[in-house]
Design a protein around this nucleic acid. Structure first.
Lengths: 115, 115
DNA sequence: CTGAATCCGATTGGATACTG
DNA sequence: CAGTATCCAATCGGATTCAG
């Protein structure tokens, strides 16, 4: 017998919609997780090397988005050659346990997935 | 002082890339989480009502994808009117702790996010 | 009821060239 | 080095129509 499905509050899934809005796209999670693991200021070019093969354009876009959300900070040094360092914030770091869990699940179950 | 970034194995972020490939898109996580919470066979139309305002096309596409990955099952009943029931698999359910953690983080931190 | 098919606009994301 | 600007292809995703 199937329970009356409509009795389940529609709001349950809403955090998930918010989450997808927060970190959607091909590179968002990989970038964020990498920065969490690093947990130190990191230069743009180093980050690009670490998260490859991401393009400059994509990396820039995602970093700007994270910055506006308060997940990472951006510090510009008035030098030649220019140096810009990005770093994960406390808020960003608070995502670590969740993302760890996610990575672990993937490592454990990748082999079981179809296709 | 900045650690030499290139010493960090590039493989660390790979599970994340796999994860994004598994459940990317606007509706994938909301659908999956909803089915996990239900944990019972659910009809197509009920699911569409629960995860709104998703279109038929999108719901169909995502369900087919999940089916091919082994995250949900699809059972067709030869009736008039036709009935099709989808249900989360054990593999799909094993994602629950991770997705719970994700939902909780979102509920706790939604207010702290910029923009 | 459960789709498949089609059309369409919006968004994503890669490649490349250029700049301070 | 750290971007910006431009072009382009592919995908995403909504609206609508049709079919078994």
């Amino acid at each position: 017998m199937i329970k009356n499905f409509s009795t389940i509050p529609a709001g349950i899934a809403c955090p998930m919609v918010s989450f997808v809005n927060l970190i959607s796209g091909k590179w968002a999670i990989p970038i964020l997780y990498r920065m969490i693991v690093i947990d130190e200021p990191v230069r743009f070019s180093d980050l690009q090397r670490a998260v490859h093969p991401i393009t400059q354009k994509e990396l820039t876009r995602q970093l700007r988005q994270f910055e506006s959300r308060g997940l990472v900070t951006r510090q510009v040094f008035a030098e030649v050659p220019p140096r810009v360092e990005y770093q994960i914030t406390a808020l960003g770091k608070s995502l670590r346990p969740t993302l760890d869990s996610l990575a672990e699940w993937m490592l454990e179950n990748e082999g079981r997935l179809g296709d």
